[in-house]
Design a protein around this nucleic acid. Structure first.
Length: 420
RNA sequence: GGAGUCGUCGCAUAGUCUGGUCUAGUGCACCACCCUGCUAAGGUGGAGUCCCGAUUAUUCGGGACCGUGGGUUCAAAUCCCACCGGCUCCGCCA
């Protein structure tokens, strides 16, 4: 949820943000109007309620003969309070719905426009020149199947399309990668956490996933629970309804969880292999920081993601995602995209979002400061996930179909240097 | 799945039977000050969260919050209903 005070003080900033996102500017005026109605309704109710309270007190002390008369008056007053209370509730609800629809205020400097309007911040590493090396690179599925590491046929048989088994080297590689990610995160202050993967509606909604992208989320109708698409969700919910202490610095968590995504609307996209699947595993950074420290923390997360890519010896580029492609919660998002030889292009491997106070306002996560209790900023970022196996296999493949293991991963694979 | 029991301002608890004097008491912890000659004790005061308004270094007024949501009533922490959560026991099960 956005900051109402800020919206009232500077609505043009929010209109500009909506423009950059390609969103609806009129929404801003709807919220302002709803706020006026809400305040009027609340005031009317509270005045009546105050009157009723003092009246009610008199009745308690009244003599029997006074009582009769007072009761009659109190009764009409009571009815008025009830009616005004309903009106106030309705106005409050209408306002809540309006403001909940406003996505986060985009940070200055984020490129405007849709998915294709991203800005490339830097490109690191050189893609291999397979032509010079004298062989045609295979894609990750061909490599994975030959190694007995990836089995999508049986995944489809058992669970349907976009499901897979990781077997042998595949399982080892994923666990190794995730353990490396967890270690790097832990060294940098992210406390490892294994989270629930089913969450209540208020947590899923609070993190902003039930807005525009609600059809991406699996829902368990019978239990009114949602399967998380990332441990960002349960980690954001971790401190829900709490006043946390950030006086000793940020709270940093490294979540490890399975992730579930419906991939609605991506029919026909990336259908081969394990690039886009319904279920995968991920190690995710999540930080709660003081508002003013959010942008520094964002850079810090990005630096750790780049460290991971470098440890896996992958060529990549970093992009500043355009406003229209941000999602409701994010005020800015950086993606790291790794080179995928079989596709001859960079593909998203990590994402880190600065959600400023958007999530914490909904989830009621605050800290105590000299100025009172204020919402904290939340940030999240990928450390590693199943998708990483794609560029790792492809970039490190050798002419004979074997795959060289990046040095940083070897300790996690029992010293294994080559998968063959 | 069944039975019992509990849910109160950081923690621990009183208050619920018998609705109004609860503007929620007490202890611990916390903060400020005072007193005290010694790593302590005592005294005084303060202190929660959210919303609305006025005024804005701030302060003041009003309202809401006793697990959540309904209901009864002039009036609900207190009575009624539903739900959620904790604990104990029974049954069933990976």
């Amino acid at each position: 949820m956005i900051d109402l005070q800020l919206l009232k003080a500077d609505p043009d900033r929010f209109r500009a943000s909506q423009r950059a996102r390609g969103g609806d500017e009129a929404l801003i005026d709807e919220v302002l109007q709803a706020d006026v109605s809400r305040r009027a309704a609340i005031q009317a109710f509270e005045d009546a309620r105050a009157e009723q309270k003092s009246f009610s007190k008199q009745i308690g002390k009244a003599t029997p003969e006074e009582r009769e008369r007072l009761l009659a008056e109190a009764k009409t007053l009571s009815e008025r309070v009830k009616a005004l209370s309903v009106e106030a509730d309705e106005a409050e609800t209408a306002f809540g719905r309006a403001i909940a629809r406003v996505p986060n205020l985009v940070i200055d400097g984020v490129p405007a426009g849709g998915e294709e309007n991203f800005a490339t911040l830097r490109t690191v590493g050189q893609p291999r020149d397979f032509a010079t090396e004298g062989f045609e690179p295979q894609d990750h599925l061909a490599l994975g199947e030959a190694l007995g590491a990836i089995d999508t046929a049986r995944g489809a048989k058992v669970s349907g399309s976009r499901f897979h088994y990781l077997v042998g080297y595949g399982a080892q590689l994923e666990l190794g990668l995730l353990n490396l990610a967890r270690d790097v995160a832990m060294r940098n202050g992210f406390v490892p956490v294994i989270t629930p993967t089913l969450v209540k509606p208020e947590v899923m909604g609070g993190t902003g996933f039930l807005g525009e992208h609600a059809d991406e989320v699996y829902r368990l109708e019978a239990d009114d629970l949602f399967l998380v698409g990332t441990s960002e969700v349960p980690l954001a919910g971790f401190h829900m309804d709490e006043i946390i202490d950030l006086s000793e610095g940020p709270k940093r968590y490294g979540g490890w969880s399975s992730c579930y995504r419906r991939e609605a609307g991506s029919h026909g996209k990336d259908t081969r292999g394990i690039f886009r699947v319904h279920q995968f595993q991920k190690v995710e950074m999540f930080s709660y920081v003081h508002q003013d420290d959010a942008e520094a923390e964002h850079e810090r997360m990005l630096a750790l993601q780049e460290e991971m890519l470098q440890l896996c010896e992958l060529p990549y580029r970093v992009i500043d995602v355009a406003a229209g492609d941000l999602g409701d919660s994010a005020a800015r998002k950086f993606d790291c995209e790794a080179w995928v030889p079989s596709q001859e292009r960079y593909r998203e491997l990590t994402s880190t979002s600065n959600c400023t106070t958007f999530q914490s306002r909904r989830l009621k996560i605050r800290e105590r400061t000299e100025k009172g209790t204020v919402p904290v900023a939340t940030l999240n970022g990928t450390m590693a996930n199943t998708r990483w196996l794609v560029p790792i296999l492809e970039n490190h493949q050798q002419a004979d179909g074997s795959v060289r293991v990046p040095e940083a991963l070897r300790p996690y694979l029992g010293g294994l240097e080559v998968l063959r």
